[in-house]
Simulated assay, not measured.
Amino acid sequence: MRALLRHVRDSVEQLSPGYFSMVMATGILSLAAHLMGVPLLANALFALNWVLFVIIGVLALLHVYWHPKLVREDLFDHLRAPGFFTFVAACSILGSQSLLLGGSLRLATLLGGIGLLTWVGFTYTIFTVLTVKQNKPGLDRGINGGWLLAVVATQSMAVLAALISNHMPQPLRLEMNFFALSMWLWGGMLYIWMMSLIFYRYTFFAFSPADLSPPYWINMGAMAISTLAGSLLILNTPHAPYLNSMLPFIKGFTVFYWATGTWWIPMLVALAIWRHGVRQFPFTYDPMYWGAVFPLGMYAVSTLRMMEAMNLPFLGKLPHAMFAIGMTAWVLLFIGQLRALRRHWAASSRA
């Protein structure tokens, strides 16, 4: 028993704060399957996602308990600190699954409450710490696409609030939609701030293949989830008169977010080809690749919702194509995760 505990303790020592991106990726693909009328796959991924959420949650708590110094170092690190926001997004997406697939308003509200509390805690802790710390990296070493997880977490709260509002009586429904609107607007402003720095880093600093880490796909994912939140606000217009007065603005920015996210897709593909094809950077399993699967599923869901909210049938099979790509990437990564776990346990047993 002691040997097992020691092994678990050693295993969680280097646990990434961004590991909840696995829950994000699984959850959004489940919701995409639900919207596309594939209930068996949607429910299977929903059940799996609860298992993943509990396992990763327990491991994260053990990491905090056994290695508090490492957790503190992660919070002070410019590249690793934004990974904590994956927990907020995981709560919101699992809450959305619980509402739409499980039919449980109570669970969705509970997960939303936990997500909101941690969003407040992480937002003001991380950005305060990164502001006041004395030793800071240069922009070329201190920022990447992972910073946009703060945007994803913010917009995920807007999405869940917009979904929950449909099950609430007035005036709580009005208040929930106003909260969703406020988070949607703040998330958009945060994206503009951060994306300006990321784009500047892209174009004016030397870029190596190692710098192009998987979290750069969040460049697109942050816009996709912003599109989803805007689409849900449009659909909620009949329940909140103030949304109706802002409808042209909301529709315009929803398309703006979708168009920006769409622009990123060929760019990210081209950079991936440059990284692995031109520069021959080795393609090996990395847990951070889950942060690249999530945007694919989110793009499919957000496009479907935007088509519904704005009557855009000419977008046709685009979300289905992105869903197929996302599911393929998810399967490959899940196999890679199982193989990595088997190698890790085998190496520990020999030790």
Rank of each mutant, 00 (worst) to 15 (best):
L48M: 06
F253P: 04
T131C: 07
L99S: 07
I164C: 00
I55E: 07
I265F: 12
G113D: 04
A162I: 11
Y19S: 15
T131E: 12
L212P: 04
A25C: 07
P137W: 00
S231A: 15
R339Y: 07
P241T: 10
I126C: 01
L4E: 11
S196G: 11
T227C: 13
Y257T: 12
L332A: 14
F46N: 13
F84E: 03
K69A: 11
S182C: 09
A329P: 00
G326W: 01
M189F: 14
G291H: 02
G113C: 06
L212E: 05
Y299L: 15
N43D: 14
V269R: 01
N219G: 00
T86W: 01
A292K: 09
V301Q: 04
P215L: 02
G326C: 06
L107M: 08
L79C: 09
F179A: 12
H7W: 13
G121L: 13
R2D: 11
W184P: 10
S226E: 01
Q170N: 12
M267A: 11
L31M: 06
T254W: 01
R173W: 10
T254C: 11
T26I: 10
D211F: 05
S349I: 11
V71Q: 08
S231R: 00
Y285P: 01
T262C: 02
G18L: 01
N177F: 10
D211L: 09
F207T: 13
M36A: 14
T254E: 07
A81Q: 01
P39Y: 05
L333D: 03
S208W: 08
R339K: 13
L190H: 09
A300C: 09
F127E: 14
Q155I: 02
N177D: 15
P169H: 11
V255E: 08
G145V: 01
I218N: 05
V88A: 03
H78K: 04
L5Q: 15
L107Q: 07
P17G: 03
F127R: 13
M183H: 11
S30Q: 07
A347W: 03
W258S: 08
L315P: 11
C91S: 07
L15C: 01
S96D: 05
G230S: 04
M194H: 08
L111G: 02
T260W: 02
